[in-house]
Design a protein around this nucleic acid. Structure first.
Length: 496
DNA sequence: CGTTACGGCTGTATAGCCGTAACGGTGCAATACT
């Protein structure tokens, strides 16, 4: 059967988008493929269509529960029922029942963490996985080395599953990150690479410098009430997202809400849905908001604080203008913004003293049955700091009675290496902010594209007209009120 | 590094000031398999 026929039959599309067909052909031939496709470029089709050609379930590693549930729902909506999400929301008993019949499914979604559980991996070993997909594969590079180290173990998982062909998908990766992904996933030497341009011509880029933070607040107020919405405002702390919402509301800006990782899951989904359905004009958020938010008409993204790497910045502004309409990304910069990002990533790792404490404690317990809480409270670490240390201490199994000094030195060495990498990325970000040249060229260079641009309304260096992005013609939908309670139930219990 | 929270001091005002310490962002999973 021709690919086009399958496309029509199962996805109701007449033709492929750029690169989709090439990627699918390679995947079906059994090649390892890494693909960087523009947001909204139809990444999921690249692994979903092969589901009708390959023999055995396709395993998709996904970073967020909400993303998994979204995808599962979309697949079900197009009439495909043989899909299952393996994660902690699956009740324990049911989990066991389903694990025995995994090969019944066409698509299996899983978190990197659940793949670390022996009985889950064993069940997958018997399921004859035909394709190993890593969605949002930049997470391997962005999180795998520290925040979520289980992302670094996917290569080993793949090997355990008999090294099925691998497809890694992302929207944002530098050449370095692509290499990192391929190495980490143990790509074969004959692997293929598909890269689309990082440039988004319809997103104007601007950086505005002010002296003090109060001026930034004033400017946000001004922009929020003049720019055409909907829009996002990114902050580096939860507190600021809430503070900005409070200020905006007090000044009469309607339909704003905050969003960050400290909120209840249900509240987070509610905000995201309300934003999606035009019931909110502005969301003030941390970097928790974004991945998997597929809204086509976001008109502006303001950075109240700038992120610690260009990749994150590009991901965040890339949420604007997916419909191709003119959109704007504005970064507000105050002179004392430069230290926050460094302080943030430094806090991911234990200090030297904490490391010494944790190694001593770890060596003193002669069982692996110590809870995370015990360790973190004993040694004054955060969970993230402990996970990092644990990841590297695993090369010194307890029964080996390793030398403590040696263990400390090994982990400390890893910490320093990570800090150097993160420092470099931050330096690239601040250099880009302060370099007097076309913003777009700066980004393009960072992603090794080496292009020049002739867009109108390109950036603050090339010149742009803010007027184009203004307008209070934003209308809230006056259609029948959406029943959120019902909507949420549907989202939570869609697995039934 | 900057902001914020909090304890202790001051010295009579029942609050204000100051210095120090802590915090600052992303998410998975969490019981016990045959």
């Amino acid at each position: 059967m021709k690919l086009e026929d399958l496309l029509l039959q199962h996805f109701n599309h007449q033709s492929f988008r750029p690169l989709q067909k090439e990627i699918i052909e390679d995947v079906v031939l059994g090649h390892d493929v890494v693909a960087m496709l523009a947001t909204g470029g139809g990444k999921s089709l690249c692994y979903q269509l092969p589901g009708y050609l390959l023999d055995g379930p396709i395993l998709i590693v996904s970073p967020l529960l909400s993303l998994m549930e979204d995808q599962v729902q979309q697949i079900r909506l197009r009439g495909e029922k043989s899909v299952l999400a393996l994660n902690s929301t699956l009740p324990f008993k049911k989990r066991h029942l389903l694990l025995h019949q995994l090969n019944k499914y066409r698509y299996l979604y899983a978190s990197p963490e659940i793949l670390q559980i022996d009985y889950v991996l064993n069940a997958l070993k018997h399921a004859n996985i035909s394709l190993f997909v890593v969605d949002e594969a930049h997470c391997i590079s962005q999180w795998g080395h520290d925040f979520r180290t289980d992302y670094s173990k996917l290569g080993e998982i793949r090997k355990q599953l008999g090294t099925p062909p691998c497809l890694a998908l992302t929207a944002t990766a530098t050449a370095e990150v692509l290499t990192d992904i391929k190495t980490s996933l143990h790509f074969s030497t004959s692997s293929k690479e598909y890269i689309s341009s990082i440039d988004r011509p319809n997103i104007a880029i601007s950086i505005e410098k002010v002296e003090f933070i109060d001026e930034k607040v004033d400017r946000v107020l001004q922009l929020a009430s003049t720019l055409k919405g909907p829009g996002l405002i990114y902050c580096s702390s939860r507190k600021w997202t809430e503070k900005l919402v409070h200020i905006l509301q007090k000044k009469g800006v309607q339909d704003v809400a905050f969003y960050h990782g400290g909120m209840e899951q249900e509240q987070r989904i509610l905000i995201q849905q309300q934003f999606l359905y035009e019931q909110l004009k502005i969301v003030c958020c941390t970097n928790a908001f974004g991945m998997g938010v597929d809204k086509s008409n976001i008109r502006f993204v303001i950075h109240f604080h700038f992120p610690s790497q260009i990749e994150s910045y590009v991901q965040e502004i890339g949420r604007a203008g997916r419909d191709g309409e003119p959109s704007i990304a504005i970064t507000l910069l105050a002179s004392n913004d430069y230290n926050m990002p460094r302080a943030l990533f430094e806090s991911e790792f234990p200090t030297y003293q904490q490391l010494c404490d944790v190694v001593r404690f770890w060596s003193s317990v002669n069982t692996k049955k110590v809870s995370v809480e015990d360790i973190t409270s004993q040694c004054g670490l955060t969970e993230v700091q402990w996970r990092f240390a644990q990841f590297h201490l695993q090369q010194f199994p307890l029964e080996m009675n390793s030398d403590q000094e040696e263990m400390i030195a090994a982990v400390w060495n890893e910490i320093e290496k990570r800090l150097v990498v993160k420092q470099k990325k931050l330096a690239a970000m601040t250099d880009w902010i302060n370099t007097k040249q076309c913003r777009r060229i700066g980004i393009s260079n960072y992603f090794n594209e080496n292009r020049t641009f002739k867009h109108s309304n390109c950036c603050d260096y090339c010149g742009l007209n803010y007027r184009l992005f203004e307008g209070n013609n934003y209308m809230l939908q006056s259609s029948a009120p959406i029943q959120w309670e019902k909507q949420l139930k549907a989202i939570f219990h869609q697995g039934e």
